[in-house]
Amino acid sequence: MKFGVVVFPGSNCDADTLHALGDILGREAVYLWHKDHDLKGVDCVVLPGGFAHGDYLRSGAIARFSPLMREVGEHAARGGLVLGICNGFQVLLEMGLLPGAMLRNKNLKFLCRFVTVRVESEKTAFTRLARKGQVLRLPIAHFDGNYYAPPDVLDEVESNGRVVLRYCDDQGRLSEESNVNGSLRSIAGLVNAAGNVMGLMPHPERAVEDLLGGTDGRLILESLIGGRVP
């Protein structure tokens, strides 16, 4: 599987993501410049974390109009895999590839710390190596991660099993305290109806080596390639 990491002006997790996919997973991984119209034949497009276009206007709002996003949209419509991490998740929301929007964190603070999230569905291309209910320890680093969607949209997403990750405590229990940013229904990650597009606020690419403080992120990236990497 070949990966493409989209680079916007202001992306700052592109190199980490390329390292995780290329050096750790040992897969072919290339950068995709946002102004090009070329996906370079990749199987999976990753929208990395950062502050695309400075997050001016709203997080992810301007990135939606980058030239390459036309090809990314077509790739997604064909059933191609798309993973949006943090700012990449915000871009997917602004593009309308995933439902909802992000508000400022409930405590108005930029949160940069490890959190625990519960795997709600192992029936996705992004979590197939995980167990339902498994608790993952992953880092977050965001200002606008307070997930919002209207009640009818939330109900539709829930009833179709599209919520993939929820913020929880280290035992996998949901609480107001463990819901660090105030997201509705503690949503930390979700997939589209077809299951080929996922967005999540935690950074799996920052948890792929013991040196980084954890390796739980590998489960998500390795799910994409369908097997554990020694």
Binding site: L57, R58, A61, E94, G100, A101, L103, Y148, A149, P150
Partner: peptide, 8 residues
């Protein structure tokens, strides 16, 4: 289309 996000 641009200035406001109609969802929120």
């Amino acid at each position: 289309k641009v200035l406001a996000n109609p969802i929120i």
